[in-house]
Nucleic acid binder design. Structure first.
Lengths: 126, 126
DNA sequence: TGAACATATGAGCAATCATTCATATGAATA
DNA sequence: TATTCATATGAATGATTGCTCATATGTTCA
């Protein structure tokens, strides 16, 4: 009885079976992959990315962020909610205002790596 | 004549003007932000992220990837095109097959940082 | 050259998403 | 308490996106 999992693979799949198995084992469980993807996706929207970039140099209240990005307060609030849910930003109330700041240094590292990558690719081509 | 850029900000904006200016200067030019966002967005889709995760342990041809992710060849090809466009993966032809591998170590670093972040947030709450 | 296989790609569609608009919540102040 | 300001959020919508299906391209082998 053949392994149905390999049905979609190319015909000489016997050759790659071991590579396929190795790759399968390299995949984290579904839940973890989804979590990772959520973080990347959050940083993959220009508005949210700009929010993160702006907060690098210090905390800002919502209306400040709206001014910096030149966008509506509502739009900013909606995006902050997503970033908050993923613990990418943290908030602190002070009177009527709510101040947001980066929650985690990992975000800065990710930004730096991504920037390096972009810089690297721009050098190579174009 | 008031600065119209601050029109959307909260009324006591004089206090934050300097923070706003600082944040504005922290924002890279439009084109660069978009490039960064594109990279994060590419990694923000579970399918593309799984492709990257699978390629961590070595190159794979398209049909192998389809087998590993248990998805159609077409779906994988479409996503590989996006990853290729951003130089996240590279390809090499060998006869009829095309082998894909990670193009850049920065991707690995980003994955590691993101994984750390997720691990960290899971510890803190829930 | 023709058949078979591996991959790439265009069109179409269902699902997701970022914003807007209207409104609710929450805090300070008169 | 009533008003005002700052923020949050639900609903609606236009735009984007990931997949499928059909088909094109490119390679090998007979």
């Amino acid at each position: 009885m053949p392994d149905l999992d390999f049905a979609a693979c190319c015909s000489e799949h016997e050759i790659h079976e071991c590579a396929i198995e190795r790759a399968r084992r390299a995949l984290p469980p579904e839940r973890q992959v989804q979590r990772l993807a959520d973080v990347f996706k959050a940083m993959g929207d220009p508005t949210r990315l700009r929010i993160i970039l702006a907060l690098r140099v210090g905390e800002l209240c919502v209306c400040d962020l709206a001014a910096v990005l030149n966008m509506s307060q509502s739009a900013i609030s909606h995006q902050l909610r997503i970033l908050r849910g993923l613990h990418l930003v943290r908030n602190r109330r002070e009177g009527k205002e709510v101040y947001y700041s980066l929650d985690d240094d990992h975000v800065i590292s990710m930004l730096a790596q991504a920037a390096d990558h972009v810089r690297h690719t721009l050098e190579t081509e174009e």
